[in-house]
Write a protein that binds this DNA or RNA. Sequence first.
DNA 1: ATCTTGACTTCGG
DNA 2: TCCGAAGCCAAGA
Length: 111
Amino acid sequence: MGWAPVYNLVKKIPRGRVITYGQLARAVRLRGGGRTAGRAMAACPSGRGIPWHRVVGAGGRLLIREPLASLQRRLLESEGVRVVENRVALREHAWTMKGGKERTRRLTPEN
DNA sequence: ATCTTGACTTCGG
DNA sequence: TCCGAAGCCAAGA
């Protein structure tokens, strides 16, 4: 599959902000939801300036396993994102695509 | 074609 | 807060 749309959006995430896999999946309309977003990011090519470290799990949890885990944490902290107990404060760093249709976390899916 | 593995999320207990 | 279960789906074996 082509993950290009995913990477293109990730490239737009500004320094100091993060997005969740679920949010990313919805924004790009991935059929498999967050899981698929995760697959895409796992296959993320390096050396192309894609800020992969700015993609986190629901609730701001850092889900990446150890080889890259420490790198992600380091990169995030290097841009001012505080990481506590393997998680970042979404209330402060969640990226809300300005002007876009992504709203901040809707708690109840309509009715 | 079947089965396993994930950089997932949500819900209920 | 911490599981377990269920829904999801692509890739690799």
